[in-house]
Simulated scan of single mutants.
Amino acid sequence: MKRRLAREKAFQALFQMLTTHLTQQEAVDYVMEGERDEFLMELVDGVTRHQQELDELISDHLEHWSLERLPKVERTVLRIAIFELKFYGDTPTQVAINEAVELAKTFGEETSGRFVNGVLSKIQ
C-alpha cells in the first residue's frame, strides 16, 4: 500500500476512534477490511500513544481556537502530521505538511487545507 493511501486509512481509523467507541484494533480492522499495512499501524499506534503530547503542541500553536473547538477532521489530520514530523522521523517535513493539507482538503471543509498548513508551518 502506498503511503498516501495508508495515511488516508490511518486518518479514517483515528477519526472512527474519535467519533465512536471503537477500539484501535476495531477501527483499523474496519477501515482495512482484513488487510495489514505496517506504516498505517505505526501512524495509528504512534498518534494514539503520543496523543497528549500532540494535543499540547497543537494547542500551543492555535490562534483564536481551543483544541476542544477544533473540528475533528482538522484535529485528526494535525495529530497525524505532527506525529510524523516530531516522532516518526522518516518523513521529510514538506512531505508531511503536503500530505496533511491534502487529507484536510479531502475530508474537511473548503478552508481546512489552509488552516492545517498554517498550524503546521508554525510547528515544523
Rank of each mutant, 00 (worst) to 15 (best):
A6D: 10
T19L: 03
F39S: 01
A27E: 07
A100T: 10
Q94T: 13
F11L: 02
Q25F: 00
L18D: 03
R79W: 07
K2L: 12
E74S: 11
S112M: 08
T23L: 01
L78Q: 01
E68G: 10
D60V: 02
F11V: 03
E63R: 05
D55A: 02
R49S: 15
L57F: 08
E53V: 00
L40R: 13
I80R: 15
D60N: 11
V119R: 02
W65I: 01
G118W: 15
N98R: 15
L62D: 05
M17K: 10
V116L: 13
L67P: 09
R79S: 12
I58F: 13
Q16H: 11
W65V: 07
K9C: 06
I58K: 05
M32V: 01
Q12M: 11
L14C: 11
M41P: 06
R114D: 13
T91P: 05
S59C: 03
A27S: 05
L54T: 05
A13E: 08
R4S: 14
V28W: 00
L43V: 10
R4N: 04
Q25E: 15
V73Q: 07
E63V: 10
A100E: 11
P71V: 07
E53M: 04
L57P: 04
I82W: 12
L85N: 14
G46L: 02
V77H: 08
K86T: 11
G46N: 04
V31C: 02
P71T: 03
T106M: 15
E99A: 15
R49W: 07
Y88G: 04
L40N: 07
K86H: 12
T48K: 00
I97G: 04
K105L: 07
R69T: 04
E63M: 03
E56S: 07
K122V: 09
V77Q: 11
F115M: 12
E26K: 09
A6F: 00
H50S: 00
K2F: 04
E33R: 13
P71Q: 06
L78Y: 00
K86F: 06
T76K: 09
R69C: 06
T23F: 01
F87P: 04
F87Y: 15
P92H: 13
H21D: 11
K86C: 14
K9E: 10
A100K: 00
Q24C: 03
D90N: 12
L103F: 07
P92G: 00
V95Y: 14
T91K: 08
E35W: 14
P71G: 10
L120R: 15
